[in-house]
């Protein structure tokens, strides 16, 4: 009985949904604030993401005629559920809900589900902008996903395990994977930017080109869930990167470990924000070219090095 209660508590509060929700809003705020500071502005107050979320929940929910209503209602939930589930396998400060051999694959799969949901949302919501945005999202998915997968395969091969917590734990004594596989980290970082559709890869939702992309026709609750799923995805993606490449919490569950983990996460977030403000948005064909001509070969080289030298 106590096991069930603690399991429920784990999933709902820490490091489950409640914790992720708070983290997502906090990271989103930090990101906006840092971006604003770099641009010479002040940025939103700390409660801003929460206010936005509540306001959207309380707004009217409309869809245009011709949109697939059930799918449009379901897709944001699928997207959110996928990233929340992925989070259960990723150690946070050394603490993980469930871990098994091969959960890295599951995590990667769950993290790419939102991209498909995003594409379908664009395709099914009966607006030209969202259709264009959706097809761009799909093209972009193919450009970043392969290098991203290969970059994350490197550490797994090195450690000899496909479990996120093992990979994270294996670095506690020795070197961070970042130092062993710098190219892999850079590729995974770039892949993450693509995954999160952040500037300079915010191609599917390019404001000045196609409105809000696939989300153009969404409003109210659905939009709130979409935003939340993207914000949670940011958090989960950063956790994953920290665990796989930056040594996680440094082994074990301790206060210093958790603090260290938090600091590393914030550093990755800062890096994401800085990359976001430094560059102009690329065009989808430029991203595809970059993905296949530069990133994929580099990932291949990194993998070969790992297999030949490390393995």
């Amino acid at each position: 009985m106590r096991d069930v209660a603690s399991a429920v508590l784990t999933i709902l509060v820490f490091p489950g949904f409640g914790f992720l929700f708070v983290c997502a809003l906090a990271f989103h705020w930090i990101d906006r604030r840092v971006t604003a500071r770099f641009q010479g502005r002040v940025g939103p107050p700390w409660f801003q993401p929460f206010a936005d979320f509540v306001k959207l929940l309380a707004k009217e929910d409309v869809l245009p005629v011709g949109a697939h209503e059930r799918a449009c209602a379901l897709l944001p939930m699928v997207s959110l559920a996928a990233v929340l589930t992925a989070a259960l396998h990723i150690p946070v400060g050394g603490y993980v809900v469930t871990s098994f051999e091969g959960d890295l694959i599951v995590v990667l799969f769950l993290l790419s589900l939102p991209a498909l949901a995003y594409f379908l949302a664009g395709w099914l919501s009966a607006s030209v902008f969202s259709v264009v945005g959706g097809s761009r999202a799909l093209l972009q998915y193919f450009a970043y996903e392969v290098p991203f997968l290969m970059a994350l395969a490197g550490p797994a091969i090195l450690v000899g395990s496909w479990s996120v917590s093992r990979i994270s734990g294996a670095q506690s004594g020795g070197l961070w994977t970042l130092l062993v596989q710098p190219i892999g980290f850079v590729l995974a970082f770039i892949g993450l930017i693509g995954k999160l559709k952040r500037s300079p890869f915010d191609i599917p939702k390019a404001k000045s080109e196609i409105g809000a992309g696939p989300l153009t026709e969404f409003s109210g609750r659905k939009l709130a869930l979409w935003h939340l799923s993207l914000q949670v995805k940011t958090v989960v993606g950063i956790f994953l990167l920290v665990d796989v490449f930056l040594g996680g919490s440094g082994g074990g569950i301790s206060l210093s470990g958790v603090t260290l983990f938090g600091v590393k996460c914030l550093l990755v977030l800062l890096a994401l924000s800085v990359t976001g403000v430094l560059y102009a948005r690329l065009r989808i064909d430029q991203l595809a070219t970059m993905g296949w001509r530069v990133l994929a070969p580099l990932a291949l080289v990194q993998l070969l090095v790992v297999v030949l030298v490390g393995g």
Partner: peptide, 18 residues
């Protein structure tokens, strides 16, 4: 690459424009 970085840093430490 990162041509804007010096200006970012300058902005960060400049008097706030807002």
């Amino acid at each position: 690459l990162a041509h804007l970085l010096p200006e970012l840093v300058r902005t960060l430490f400049a008097r706030r424009a807002t």
